[in-house]
Amino acid sequence: MELTADGPTAGRGDRARGALLGLAVGDALGAPAENLRPSEIRRRWGRIEGFVSDDPAGTDDTEYAIFSGLLLARHGSALTVSHVERAWHHWIADLDEGPFRGAGFSERGTLENLRRGLAAPISAQHRHAWSDGLAMRAAPFGVFAAGRPAEAARLVAVDGRVSHDGEGIYGGQAVAAGVAAAMVGAGLASVIAAALSVVPMDSWTARSLRRAVTAAQRPYPDRLTGERAVRSAVVIGGYPWTDLAPEAVGLAFGAFTAARGDFREAVLMAVNMGRDADTTAAVAGALAGALQGASAIPRAWASAIGPVRGSCLPSMRGYHVLDIAELLTPDDAEDAPGGRGAPPAPDREHAFTAPPGGPSPLPAVSGARTRRAGR
């Protein structure tokens, strides 16, 4: 299935920048609210309407999305599970980076399995194979396979077989397909339909997504009531883990639907619903950014996003999500602000130097960004 535009007009390169910058913005906005209940968020900040940190930064969501985007840029539709597994070893599992620097339990379980010598798909057989760790890094696949939701879903499942299974895979597929549809301006209903078309209709993911979207489409007397309705439609009360893929994906699509695709409203609703707020807002931001383009992202938010710090994946330090947008849409890069003409970053040269024992499995970036987006 290929989709054509019937929504807002924007170029493919602008939508790519919108999707990946939107992911990073949502991640940074939601990070302080991660694992909090809405009542706790209101008690600390009232309603979050922007960054609540003086030094906002992305988390594992952005760094793993960059990692997967670089891998996809190198291999494209020829990507195999072996490519993904090898990259996990070279750039994550086999590096001596000291204590684990922070990511979800799915990543921790995968790394432990890989370090024990287990291979995919057995490496994904751990307690948290259903987490949202694949959904959080799925947007680059939708950017690459713009207008081809089925191909985006196929490719993200290849990536996910190293770390996820079952509902964890389905969550990634729904996000990748939704972004692929949004990348050609397919319209709100078509984006949702694309996400549902690539996962089993009786799956937990599909049920959560349908429930959230249905709740989001109803009229409410005020914004808070609407947020509570969407959250109640999806969240399992009392369950201690917040990184459930069906839940996070459902909440993200619910926020995207309630906002009618508006970037600011979608991301802020996702943040203020709490739970795994960084991932939920990252996914909502990727969907809305792909649909509306980078110009829909408030300039102050875009300007706060710099190259990632490697706080989770040290090997990704210094790369910017806009680099990934350029790599995944090379035909549109000449028109991108700070695109191919941007100066190289000297401190980035190390990042994809071949590790001991083999060549780099990932591409270099021709135009590295040493400044924050939007400046």
Rank of each mutant, 00 (worst) to 15 (best):
T4S: 15
A5M: 10
P8I: 15
D14N: 12
L20E: 05
A31I: 07
R37H: 14
W45T: 10
P56M: 11
A57K: 04
T62L: 11
E63A: 08
E63W: 01
S68D: 02
S68N: 02
H83I: 01
A87D: 00
D96K: 00
E97P: 03
G98M: 06
P99W: 00
A119G: 00
H128W: 15
D132K: 03
A135L: 06
P149S: 13
D159E: 13
S163N: 07
H164S: 12
G168K: 07
I169F: 09
Y170I: 01
Y170G: 15
A176N: 09
G178A: 11
G178V: 08
A189C: 07
I192C: 11
A193Y: 15
W204Y: 11
R207S: 14
L209T: 14
L209P: 09
P219I: 02
Y220A: 11
A229K: 01
V230E: 01
G237P: 07
P240H: 14
V249S: 13
G250S: 04
F253Q: 02
T257H: 06
R260M: 02
A266N: 03
V267M: 09
A270M: 12
N272H: 13
M273S: 11
R275S: 12
A282P: 00
A284R: 04
G285W: 15
A286P: 03
G293W: 15
I297W: 01
S303A: 15
S315R: 12
G318C: 09
L327W: 02
A336I: 04
G341P: 01
P343D: 15
D347G: 14
H350G: 08
P356K: 01
P359N: 08
S360F: 03
L362K: 02
L362S: 01
S366H: 13
A368R: 13
A368M: 04
A368K: 10
